[in-house]
Write a protein that binds this DNA or RNA. Structure first.
Lengths: 115, 115
DNA sequence: CCGGATCCTTTTAGATACTG
DNA sequence: CAGTATCTAAAAGGATCCGG
C-alpha cells in the first residue's frame, strides 16, 4: 500500500485523502446544497436533517479552511452569513453526483424505498 | 433532506447509504484489490498496510454478507480461504476508481508527494 | 442570527491473546 | 492459515448552554 503524508498525518490511499477532506456525515450534503447557489447558515441548518450547530459550524469551518467554500459575513442586524462554493469545491461535485447515483442504484437493488 | 430506512437504521442520503456498505478505512481497499483477481486472506493481510486481523475479518464478513464478495474455503491442510468479487461488488469499482482519480488530483493540487 | 465552548455518548479501530 | 474474543484508545457525533 502506498503511503503519503499531510499535516503529519499518514494516508495510505488517495480515497482516504478524499474522505479526510470531504468525508463524514455532513460535508458532502453541504457541498451538494451549495453547488449552484449561495446559502446562509440558517438555511443549511434547516435543510440538513438533524445536524447540530456544533457539527454544522465545525464542518463549514473545515470546508472553508480547506478551500472548498467561502464565507461572507454581512454586517446587518441581525448578522447574516452566507456560504458559497469555490472552484475547488465545484471540482468535488461530479464525484458526489456519481456517489449519489450509485447510492440510488444500490438502494433500488437492495429493495429500499423512500419512507 | 429525504429519509430512508434499512435494517431499522435511518439514512438521510444515498451517499450515506453507500458509505454504510463500502465505507470505512478498509472496504474500498479490499474491493480494489479483488477487482480482477481472487485473493486469499493472508495476501490481503500483507497488501493492506496496518490492517489487523480483527478489522480485516470483520470487513470481509460484512462485504460477503452484503453481497459484494464471495468466500471459498478450500479444505487443505493448512486451510486456505479465497475471496472473490461478485457482480454486485464489481458495480462498485467504477466509483472507487473515480474516487481514486479525484484523490490523486486533490493531492497534487494540495502539493502532496508520495513519501 | 451565527456559532464557540463544554461535556457526554456512540462508533470505530488498534493491541493482544488464543483456537480449529 | 484464518480467523475470534476481549479489552482499550481514539474519533466522530450529539446535547446544552452561552456570547458577539
Amino acid at each position: 500500500m502506498p503511503e503519503f503524508l499531510s499535516d503529519n498525518k499518514k494516508y495510505y490511499t488517495p480515497v482516504e485523502y478524499v474522505f479526510s477532506k470531504i468525508g463524514g456525515t455532513y460535508k458532502m450534503p453541504i457541498l451538494w446544497r451549495l453547488k449552484d447557489k449561495i446559502v446562509r447558515y440558517s438555511e443549511l441548518k434547516k435543510s440538513i436533517s438533524n445536524v447540530s450547530d456544533r457539527m454544522l459550524s465545525k464542518n463549514l469551518k473545515e470546508l472553508c479552511s480547506d478551500g472548498f467554500l467561502e464565507k461572507k459575513i454581512i454586517a446587518e442586524v441581525p448578522v447574516r452569513v452566507e456560504y458559497s462554493i469555490t472552484e475547488k469545491g465545484n471540482n468535488s461535485i461530479p464525484i458526489i453526483s456519481a456517489l449519489r447515483d450509485y447510492g440510488f442504484s444500490l438502494m433500488e437493488k437492495d429493495g429500499i424505498n423512500k419512507k
